[in-house]
């Protein structure tokens, strides 16, 4: 840590506040504009709305099939996260707790996924999905996200597993409990904070993803929020009031989750990067 003089502290506060302003101002404008009429957005961009037009949200919601997009996004995200957590925590448990031939190479093979962006493999993924008849299916997306989330999740969870005390496990082993029982009954409950962290990362990744839905989905009824928003922006280019409202609606779920879990989020994020 550094020690700042009073004067230096004042300068620091100035710059830090400036950055906070640069971060928040566009978002504030997005929120305020969503309550104005298009005319007002154009004519008085810096003012508060003269009348708070909640109806912008109603028209955005109705015109953009947001109900469908939300349902799809929630479904895909929830199932993907559940699958990632289950599959990755089992794998991490085995890697962290047991020694077997070739373990190092298997772990290295999985770690390679940390530096290989899945989207580079999109053509074969597209072809696989086509041959499995999973194109334009939400289940196809879930499979891609689950597979794509494994590398990072296993990596984080192995680190967490290593921090867990082993004595309880050892005594359970002596009592005759099998590996799956120990994992399920003893380790998973202890691992809850780590699982929350892993779930959060994958939540942001999956919820925000635009690329895979763009390639793998085609019908309107299957779109997730980012993809639906894109269609919406293409259709209503001049009605800025509705566009801003649509942006806000799309941001809201992430905002809520982030505000509730921001502390864990930041801790997990920085810890992951520092490893």
């Amino acid at each position: 840590m550094l020690k700042f003089t009073r004067f230096q502290k004042a300068i620091a506060i100035f710059f830090l506040t400036l950055l906070a302003f640069i971060n928040l101002y566009p978002i504030g404008i997005m929120v305020l504009s969503s309550f104005k009429s298009t005319r007002e957005i154009f004519m008085k961009p810096f003012n508060l709305p003269s009348v708070w037009r909640w109806q912008n949200y109603v028209s955005a919601w109705q015109r953009a099939d947001f109900a469908v997009y939300f349902k799809n996004s929630i479904l895909v995200t929830a199932i993907s996260i559940a699958a990632i957590l289950l599959v990755s925590s089992m794998a991490a448990y085995v890697i962290a707790r047991f020694d077997f031939k070739g373990k190092r190479y298997i772990y290295l093979y999985l770690l390679a996924g940390l530096a290989l962006p899945t989207r580079l493999a999109i053509i074969p993924i597209f072809l696989l999905m086509r041959s499995m008849l999973l194109l334009d299916k939400l289940s196809g997306l879930v499979i891609v996200y689950t597979a794509g989330g494994i590398a990072f999740s296993v990596f984080l969870l192995v680190n967490f597993f290593k921090k867990l005390p082993r004595d309880i496990e050892d005594s359970a082993m002596i009592d005759g409990a099998g590996p799956f029982r120990i994992y399920w009954k003893i380790d998973l409950p202890l691992l809850k904070p780590a699982l929350v962290t892993v779930a959060m990362f994958n939540f942001i990744d999956v919820w925000n993803d635009f690329f895979f839905p763009l390639i793998l989905l085609s019908s309107k009824a299957k779109k997730t929020i980012p993809l639906g928003l894109q269609a919406f922006f293409g259709e209503y280019t001049i009605e800025w009031d509705v566009l801003f409202a649509a942006l806000n609606i799309s941001v809201l779920p992430v905002l809520i989750v982030f505000l509730i879990l921001s502390k864990q989020f930041i801790a997990g994020m920085t810890e992951g990067a520092l490893k």
Binding site: V87, Y93, L110, A147
Partner: peptide, 9 residues
Amino acid sequence: MLLPALLLY
């Protein structure tokens, strides 16, 4: 228990 992750990946 390692299998599902390995297969999917």
